[in-house]
């Protein structure tokens, strides 16, 4: 469903993403891990057509990110880093705005909204303005926004950052439940998350893919805990 070919992006002289290629199929939960500044977020921004690549391309659900950005964006649910939202809006009106922007027909909006509120357990705060919410709730508003149109592809940039252990568990359960008929990419630097959630992992450092495997395979291959493997792979 996602096919990335030779994607490259520079920020000035710095190569943030350097010629990476990979494919992700339906049912896969891909954990994108790497140190800060490795190029995870930049890759995700290119896949969601926020940044345009300097060279290379990718296609999502058969739509090219350069030639068909609108179709790509319609088929993706995206949670940007730090889960930005319009903080003066209430959760309800914010999600309604997302429904409208995603052109969900008026009659289906109520169902879509209720489903998203339910999935992300946002019902108790739905009439509060977003700026009054705790970090965990804000992150879940971001998640609800990404799920509301039931997209085939989910791209989540650090979805569990700032959540407490219970909330982390909830989000992981939620993603696991949805995984079989979706294609999910999450970025994280929490390794336990990859083990708990992902059936595939790509380790990226300095803009290059250093390993592409499953968490289990990595462990049996190197016969060491994931953390040590991560250190050896990313520091060379």
């Amino acid at each position: 469903m996602i096919s990335v070919k030779n994607l490259t992006h520079h920020f000035g002289p710095i190569k943030a993403v350097d010629d990476i290629s990979f494919d992700v199929e339906k049912g896969q939960v891909l954990g994108f891990i790497g140190p800060n500044g490795a190029g995870k977020s930049t890759t995700m921004k290119m896949l969601t057509c926020f940044l345009s690549p300097d060279s290379g391309t990718a296609s999502i659900c058969g739509h090219d990110i350069i030639r068909q950005p609108l179709q790509v964006r319609s088929s993706i649910g995206y949670l940007p880093e730090n889960a930005p939202a319009y903080s003066e809006m209430t959760v309800n009106s914010f999600l309604n705005f997302i429904c409208a922007a995603r052109a969900i027909p008026r009659r289906q909006r109520k169902t879509a909204l209720d489903r998203a509120l339910q999935l992300c357990s946002l019902n108790p705060v739905k009439n509060q303005t977003i700026e009054t919410l705790s970090k965990g709730y804000k992150r879940r508003v971001g998640l609800a926004q990404a799920l509301i149109h039931d997209p085939q592809v989910l791209i989540l940039d650090e979805p569990t950052d700032g959540l407490d252990p219970n909330q982390k568990h909830e989000v992981r359960q939620l993603l696991k439940k949805m995984a079989p008929d979706k294609c999910i990419i999450i970025s994280t630097h929490i390794l336990e998350e990859v083990q708990a959630l992902c059936n595939r992992t790509i380790i990226i450092a300095q803009g290059k893919i250093r390993a592409d495997s499953t968490p289990e395979k990595l462990k049996t291959q190197h016969n060491r805990p994931l953390e040590e493997i991560f250190r050896t792979i990313t520091q060379n």
Binding site: F50, P84, R102
Partner: peptide
């Protein structure tokens, strides 16, 4: 400043 530009411009809106 708030980063919501990334949200707005990744919606299916030109």
């Amino acid at each position: 400043r708030t980063g919501s530009i990334e949200l707005l411009l990744t919606l299916p809106i030109t």
